[in-house]
Design a protein around this nucleic acid. Structure first.
Lengths: 227, 227
DNA sequence: GTAAATATATGACAAATATCATAAAGAATA
DNA sequence: TATTCTTTATGATATTTGTCATATATTTAC
């Protein structure tokens, strides 16, 4: 039987671990969500019933505390599992997830995944690796940011979108200055000011959301010397 | 067969998931390490060959970057798995682990754990839950610290040792001011100054490493209003 | 037991970052 | 189109935190 996941990267993550009959069940039971930009499709506090995979697009993981302050925890790109480090440990989501661009989400019933974990040791192993890698990336990224100055933090964000999301020197920032502030822990004004300084120093060009990296080595040097 | 892990908390984590014969293999193949204070028993970069459990004592997870700067990632207490969020994802340790007090570490060969993951779905499930919970705690703690002022950060550290480690209002800090700085991202002088301020304000008494909490509600208020 | 190293402590000052105020540009809405 | 709301931008100023200097106390090494 042809599985509609054939062209999807999720196969390369789990394929080898699944028997043909398991794969059919796995792929057959999935739903696809086509979401436009700005849709919060997971809300902190909601019960976890499914396992979600970002097939295309861009998302942010975020949480709001009792005082109403919002923090952005990480950005997710295609081939990322959404909130995967959360779904096996808790009954409800600790974080919300919102699209930053038009995105396609694959939704699997959590019971199918849990069942495969129980019956297929290799699959269980893949899940363990994937969850821990996802969590480790969040930990090392947030520890990295913690130790840097405002210049290093903003340089990191710009380099992140260039190196891990758009792969070109010119791109439209998918986040507002405010969201960069929520991710870095800086104030909005500081974010705006640092971006302006980078522009004045000829490191980047800025036209609203549009960023063009002029001096990538300079940006990298700022990032690296910002401890 | 009597297993010497009978009195150990690790049984309550994995017990129900293991058949009697599996349990024998699990417990029989373990080694115990008795370590004095200040011993680095896991070093970043070393190959991961075992699964380690902190039976008694206190440890810190830390890493040193290329510039020689050391960051403390988390503190581990009894019943914690040491670096568990790392061992399934990587071949080598990303972090070092050092005892802060005399500690007992149980060492299991990683292949035994991996084998159980493959053959026992319930056990695999427990491992997934444990790894993700460990990682989630680190993520939420570090996000929490990131958003707080120096007063909130130091209050958090003092409250952590009172509430999660010693359970009494008076205790000896198991870490130096420098280590608190490495954990919070503050400078050493700032850590010392804030502790002094807390003392001058009558929140705590300080005799070198000895801390006595005088006004716990006051400390909590500082922590909570420090965003 | 003495010397050296490390940890704690505090002051003075500098640097980093936040806050408040204000304004213009853009986007959303009626 | 006019109106409102949000985002971006910048200046002035205040607050937070770091750095450097120096001193004492404590621990470690020989």
């Amino acid at each position: 039987m042809q599985c509609s996941c054939n062209n999807c990267h999720i196969r390369t993550i789990f394929y080898e671990t699944l028997m043909s009959n398991e794969l059919d069940g796995f792929c057959g039971a999935r739903t696809e969500l086509l979401l436009s930009k700005g849709v919060t499709f997971i809300r902190q506090g909601d019960e976890i019933k499914s396992f979600k995979y970002l097939k295309e697009g861009l998302i942010k993981l975020h949480k709001t505390d009792d005082t109403g302050k919002t923090q952005i925890i990480s950005f997710g790109k295609p081939m990322d599992f959404v909130s995967i480090h959360n779904i096996f440990a808790e009954k409800t989501y600790s974080y919300s997830v919102t699209t930053l661009e038009k995105s396609i989400i694959c939704v699997f019933d959590l019971s199918i995944i849990n069942n495969l974990v129980k019956t297929n040791g290799d699959f269980a192993n893949r899940i363990i690796q994937t969850t821990t890698r996802t969590a480790n990336k969040i930990i090392s990224d947030s520890l990295d940011l913690l130790g840097r100055s405002m210049y290093g933090k903003i340089a990191r964000v710009i380099l992140f979108f260039q190196e891990e999301i758009y792969f070109t020197y010119g791109f439209d920032l998918p986040v507002s200055r405010k969201e960069i502030a929520q991710y870095t822990g800086l104030s909005i004004e500081t974010v705006i000011r640092v971006i302006s300084e980078f522009r004045k120093d000829g490191l980047i060009k800025v036209y609203g959301k549009r960023i063009e990296i002029i001096d990538k080595k300079g940006l990298q040097a700022i990032y690296e010397h910002s401890k």
